[in-house]
Amino acid sequence: MTVTRELRPATRPARVPRGLRVALLLAPALGVVVVLFGGGFVQAVAQSVGYQPYPPARDLSLDAYRALWADPAVRASVGITLRVALVSTAAAAVLGVAAALLVRSLGRTRRGFAALLQVTLPLPHAVAALAMILLLAQSGALSRVAAGLGWVDGPADFPALTQDAFGWGIIASYVWKEAPFVAVVVLAALSSGVAELEDAARALGASAAQRLRHVLLPVLAPAVAAASVLVLAFTLGSYEVPFLLGRPFPATLPVVAYQQFRDPDLAARPLAMAIAVVTAVLVGACAVAYLSLSERLRG
């Protein structure tokens, strides 16, 4: 007897499309970003153009953005914000690269020093700021040592490095925190075959300085740039360090935005939100630059 059986393709359980699956898996994290950050940004934009969820209703306008440039506190704030962010980023990049190259040149102690570099990474910025006060303020350790050594008549004669007009204290705090971050990123980039490229350059007659100029720095540039963009974004938008180490006037943009936000006069709210939006756009531009550089680094 012959038994015939209908041949059917093996059935599989219905599969969720890949795109939907990825979206579902990412939903919790995306939800936090979209609701908290996106929602906050939308609220800030709305309030910056005059929307207020309480009476009296106001006409929507870009008056707050026009007022930004008319306000001397904001104009001064843009200057110190950019100065502090750019100087901190440049110093962190230079010192971070130098530290990474130095650590790489060490022999067996390399790992220990590399670990030491990372000690500051988990510390909160507020802790770094307080450490700078203890170290750099006119009542701090450095001023007393200088007075003890006779370099200045008394601690109060020591140059003001915190709450100063230039922002040295803020910059020092950022550099202390961010230079090791850049160094860690550069060390990771250095571990990916750069030594072999240097050997190739040596065999082609490149001296140590030529190898640094023509091989190391170009090869490390994307990694340094990506890390620097992150540092720049952070220093542009950070609030607590300039609040603790800076002057009330001129203050950095995030500090001014908070000062305006705390103003009991609700008419100041659009200006506060306009400052916050401008800061967020600057940070967003940094994020886009970072993504672009990361793409280059991978490519």
């Binding site: 072999e196 050997d199 190739a200 040596r202 065999a203 082609l204 007659g205 490149a206 001296s207």
Partner: peptide
């Protein structure tokens, strides 16, 4: 290495 009259292909 950079002053030796030697080339190298890796």
């Amino acid at each position: 290495a950079e002053r030796r009259p030697v080339g190298m292909v890796f």
